[in-house]
């Protein structure tokens, strides 16, 4: 069977029905793609910004192209995939709302995971430390971070409301990558990252 993958990737994989078509935007080293292909017989494709990442994926037999979430989703036709996945990348896009719109156009479902900027550690570091937060899921200095559009879980829910997007599933993980079930206000405090499955309403 397939080797174990990162917890948040496993959560995403669990949302994908076997035998479907999926596009992983920002697929990195292709761990999720390989898992979807091998464990769930998914026709899985990838897009990755770094050429080195792309080359490594293709050398491993994965279907991956070099591309940018902000600009290259436009090429795909409507509903080309059952799922369009964006894991830990939304906060690094120039126009997150546009990217989400494109994902929901190209895919019947969009699956998005992102770090929660309202996590209590982040809040503490900013409020009491007086410095830009650096945490396990946000390990960058303010001047070299690729994360230019950070948001909280509640911010993301609000954007979904504004866009008229239906939230099909929402999973919140604590800093030990364990799933937590709490009321939204607390989830936004305790959750370190979140995974959402969306569809157009």
């Amino acid at each position: 069977m397939a080797a174990p993958i990162r917890v948040d990737l496993q959560l995403i994989a669990d949302m994908v029905e076997p035998g479907t078509r999926a596009l992983d935007v920002g697929c990195g080293d292709g761990a999720l793609l390989a898992h979807l292909m091998n464990a769930k017989r998914v026709d899985a494709r990838g897009m990755e910004l770094s050429q080195a990442g792309v080359n490594a994926c293709v050398a491993n037999g994965l279907s991956v192209i070099q591309g940018d979430a902000d600009t290259d989703l436009r090429d795909y036709p409507d509903a080309a995939f059952d799922y369009v996945i964006l894991s830990q990348t939304l906060q690094a896009t120039r126009e997150p709302r546009r990217v989400l719109e494109q994902m929901l156009r190209v895919g019947k479902h969009a699956i998005v995971s992102f770090p929660n900027f309202a996590h209590w550690q982040v809040r503490l570091r900013l409020v009491f430390g007086g410095r830009m937060p650096e945490t396990a899921s946000l390990p960058y200095k303010w001047y070299d971070t690729p994360n230019i559009h950070l948001c909280s879980i509640d911010d993301f829910r609000a954007l979904c409301r504004t866009m008229g997007v239906r939230i099909e599933r929402a999973i919140v993980l604590n800093s030990k990558s364990r799933r937590i079930t709490l009321p939204p206000l607390l989830a936004n405090l305790i959750g370190e990252q979140a995974v959402f499955m969306l569809r157009r309403d």
């Binding site: 050429q51 293709v58 192209i65 290259d72 090429d75 795909y76």
Partner: peptide, 18 residues
């Protein structure tokens, strides 16, 4: 060509070799 293949959701890999 890659853009054209994406436009029909073809199964495509693309590598630029340095």
């Amino acid at each position: 060509v890659v853009h054209a293949l994406n436009a029909v959701a073809a199964n495509v890999s693309f590598v630029e070799v340095d």
